[in-house]
Design a protein around this nucleic acid. Structure first.
Length: 479
RNA sequence: GGGUCGUUAGCUCAGUUGGCAGAGCAUCGGAUUUUUAAUCCGGUGGCCGCAGGUUCGAAUCCUGCACGACCCA
């Protein structure tokens, strides 16, 4: 377990303790962080201000009776300079410091011959002893599996990764800011649910001992947020971690972050406007340009987004009316497209065909509108076509980023849809959420609802090719 | 689930036709009072992912397994 590199460090740890130094002290008060020292250099330098600061040692360059070290704090790096003639016998203590250790220093700032802002150290202390060697300073940590499994090392060794995850947080904060400004109320609903619903997906099961009852980690929070609309809130949203017990690849992590928003007295047209406005807001606040790149593709985020009809586009592609096609016709198409269609409902087959023929080809931000009723049990029937519902998905670079409906608020129709879904024996619900229907029976106003996948949005806006690059601790098999 | 590729020192990577296990950084010892991928001299460090097989001999060829990446489903 302890390799040779560690033995030396353990020796130094012991040495520190023998000298009466606690290698893991409790607290250290900084007067400045590194950015503040750099930004205020002239003032600090002229007034000979004594600064107190701290960071992790990244490199040490020893020169006999002096030493330079580069430290890292959360945002940037700073060089320090230690001299035997200033520190006297305490200078020798620095030999017990290694790369990776946290050091606290006190000193004055100056510029070296080459113009680098540096702190000339008058006092220094061990803030935490590191027992393991850091990844290499020049190449960083490249091994992709190690980067995911030991993200802390990735964050230490690759400052751009540390920077990237700040951008993810900024993205979420701007979404919050946007919705809050619009008068939406952020709420929290259960992650542990006795009945799962709101999407077609397999849940993670667990067991609640106190109630002696099986529970599920939510696959969506749709049904709870709609209950809140029934309750009288008119605009609500939740930034929710959802869980789906399904495959794991470049676009799927079993736990992922969604934002779901519901607004009373509007419909899916209203949700399209909201999405366009939100995306504009995010681009303005987060990106240098409205042009985004993903793999070999490039596009611009600019409203209004293109709108295409699900059925019209698909029918044009296949050359017949797919909603009136025979089961054989659809199966043959699946075979042609090498889709594994066994056990799928007619609706799911059509959706797989759509995904292969239409969705994958879409690059520019596009609203796909008016989905088949078969695959949309929670959306309201289309006002002009009974076979369809008022639903859209936003697709960019072939990826589904948002999904929205004019929400179905007719309780009788909702029960029929759930029953039809149960009869299909399809993945998705196994039990009707009677309380949800009861809530609808008390009356839900006309409502527009929207879900946006935050992880994928992050991938697309920031050009990250894998969902594992936008999740701090992506799921991997236990090694 | 299927296919392709990968796994060698703490990290980044070489390793020729099957013939002694290598480099840089890190680490240790020495020199060095403005360096910055510091420099110079000398060391330490290996279950070559794991388990089998072929062979006089395997990091290298074969089989299985584990983990990962990409593609397909």
């Amino acid at each position: 377990m302890y390799h040779l590199n560690m033995e030396e460090r353990l020796r130094k740890l012991k040495d520190l303790r023998e000298k009466g130094i606690n290698p893991y002290p409790y607290k250290f008060e900084k007067t400045h962080n590194f950015s503040e020292i750099k930004e205020n250099f002239e003032k600090l330098n002229q007034s000979e201000t004594v600064v107190t600061t701290a960071g992790r040692i990244l490199t040490i360059r020893g020169h006999g009776k002096t030493a330079f070290a580069t430290l890292s704090d959360e945002n940037t790096q700073l060089q320090i300079y230690l001299r035997r003639d200033r520190l006297n016998e305490k200078f020798e203590l620095f030999k017990l410091f290694d790369l990776g250790d946290f050091i606290g220093i006190k000193g004055t700032v100056f510029k070296t011959r080459t113009g680098e802002i540096t702190v000339l150290v008058d006092e220094f202390s061990m803030l935490s002893k590191s027992l393991r060697p850091l990844p290499e300073k020049w190449h960083g940590l490249k091994d992709i599996e190690l980067k995911y499994r030991k993200r802390y090392l990735d964050l230490i060794a690759n400052p751009e990764v540390r920077e990237f995850f700040k951008k993810r947080t900024a993205l979420v904060n701007f979404i919050r800011q946007f919705l809050n400004q619009k008068g939406f109320l952020e709420v929290e609903t259960p992650i542990l649910q006795p009945i799962y619903g709101g999407a077609a997906a397999q849940p993670f099961k667990t067991f609640y001992n106190a109630l002696q009852q099986e529970m599920y980690l939510r696959i969506a929070d749709e049904l709870y947020l709609k209950r809140l609309i029934v309750g009288g809130y008119e605009k609500v949203y939740e930034i929710c971690r959802d869980f789906r017990n399904e495959g794991l690849d470049r676009f799927h992590n079993p736990e992922f972050t969604m934002i779901e928003a519901y607004e009373a007295y509007t419909d899916y047209e209203g949700m399209m406007e909201l999405v366009e406005e939100l995306f504009q807001f995010l681009v303005d606040n987060l990106l240098a340009s409205s042009t985004i790149k993903f793999g070999d593709n490039e596009t611009e985020i600019k409203k209004p987004f293109k709108r295409i009809s699900y059925i019209d586009t698909l029918n044009k592609k296949v050359g017949f009316d797919i909603l009136n096609a025979s089961p054989e016709q659809i199966d043959n198409l699946c075979k042609e497209l090498k889709i594994d269609y066994k056990g799928l409902s007619p609706g799911s087959k059509i959706d797989k065909i759509f995904s292969a023929l239409v969705q994958k080809e879409i690059i520019e931000p596009t609203f796909i509108t008016d989905y088949p009723k078969l695959i949309s049990p929670l959306a309201k029937e289309h006002r002009k076509d009974k076979r369809l519902v008022e639903r859209f998905e936003l697709v960019i670079f072939g990826l589904e980023l948002a999904n929205a409906f004019s929400e179905l608020n007719n309780p009788i129709e909702q029960r029929r849809r759930f029953e039809a879904q149960l009869a299909q024996h399809e993945e998705g619900i196994r039990e009707i959420d009677e309380d949800f229907i009861e809530a609808l029976e008390y009356g839900m106003p006309p409502t527009g609802g929207l879900g946006i996948g935050i992880d994928r949005l992050c991938m697309v806006l920031f050009g990250q090719p894998s969902i594992r690059d936008v999740i701090l601790f992506p799921q991997l098999r236990k090694d």
